[in-house]
Design a protein around this nucleic acid. Structure first.
Lengths: 195, 195
DNA sequence: TCAATATCTGAACAGACGTTCAGATCAACC
DNA sequence: GGTTGATCTGAACGTCTGTTCAGATATTGA
């Protein structure tokens, strides 16, 4: 028997994903060629096809893994505290998670229209799951009387849009630290849903 | 002398812009070809160059006009009312304006990276002007004691992100009317900045 | 009716695109 | 050391890209 695994496969694969991630985020999926990705990694374009069946699968793989990470980490938040405590945990988590991987956030948001219909449906379903987690918190808070939210569906989308927007302006060397950003957003969210 | 204006120029020009608008919004600037735009209008690709010097100018023209409209309409809002009244007017205006032209909003937001650096600087400057108008309202409210906003810059971006998000889910035949949407968002914004 | 000119076609340009594949290269196991 | 198979190159494929332009067509003012 020969080797069971290629010498570079364990390294080249992630490097390709990383290069694709950066290039897609900077120029957009449609504007990036397989040759650019290969060149960034130091390969010829043909070699990429040892790691992905095609360009579309590369995009989908990045987005799917991102959503799985998001939902996986979300599941670790305490789920039996008060709605207010759970909302605060959600807000702080959402900001920290998104600020840790701005390129992935950008791609998962901007490149939805470049997915095939089947792939789009998968990502959209995961996104819906995430939104539902927040809506559950808001509904529970309304039921217990701690929140005043006339329309939990709209409030869910409003809060997520507001929080995700942080990735468009936050800079690690900027005026505010992540905890400060979390505090400021949490202050606004808390008041916006307060009874 | 011959005719001073071409027979179709007054019609073809807007039709090209309209087709480009729709196609850019649906597939993205980089994924749309000049031949697709021409075909939508019923022309050959070469004819487009009677109306735009190149593809980039077509994109910039759409975005520039959009931002000019936005700032032009914004200027008509009352500017001497109380900060609370001005904030309410801003919120309702922003939602109505954006829901009236979802494709332009989408393009102006998603295709920034496909602008040349010079064109990007122009659009970014106009965007900054718009944000400054909101920040002024918040600052005035803080000064007069009617708002409690620890960081007006962050709050500005947070409110705009929240409001602009409406374009991602609102549907004219959906559950909520535009006035209902305006009321719900205004309720959240008002509380989030309240003293 | 005729000349002037705005508008458009259709072909061409040089290059880039995603993808395939035969053959070269290389590392790991026997 | 030889064999196996993973990995990669380099060329090729058919097609598409933005843009240009000579010539055809259409429309108007004189």
């Amino acid at each position: 028997m020969a080797r069971t695994q290629g010498s570079h496969a364990g390294i080249t694969g992630p490097r390709i994903r990383d290069a694709a991630l950066r290039l897609f985020a900077e120029h957009g999926f449609a504007a990036v060629s397989m040759r650019q990705i290969a060149s960034t990694v130091g390969l010829q374009a043909g070699a990429l096809y040892n790691y992905t069946p095609d360009k579309q699968a590369l995009l989908f793989s990045l987005m799917k893994e991102h959503m799985d990470d998001l939902l996986g980490d979300l599941a670790h938040l305490p789920s039996h505290d008060s709605p207010l405590a759970r909302l605060e945990a959600f807000v702080r988590f959402h900001i920290a998670f998104h600020l840790e991987r701005p390129e992935l956030v950008f791609i998962a948001y901007m490149e939805l229209r470049n997915l095939t219909p089947e792939n789009f449906a998968v990502i959209e379903g995961l996104r819906r799951d995430y939104e539902n987690a927040l809506e559950r918190i808001l509904s529970d808070g309304v039921a217990s009387g701690s929140f005043d939210v006339p329309d939990t569906k709209l409030a869910t989308l409003a809060v997520i849009a507001m929080l995700t927007g942080v990735t468009t302006w936050y800079r690690p060397d900027g005026r505010l630290s992540i905890p400060e950003v979390q505090n400021l957003y949490w202050d606004m969210v808390r008041k916006s849903v307060s009874a």
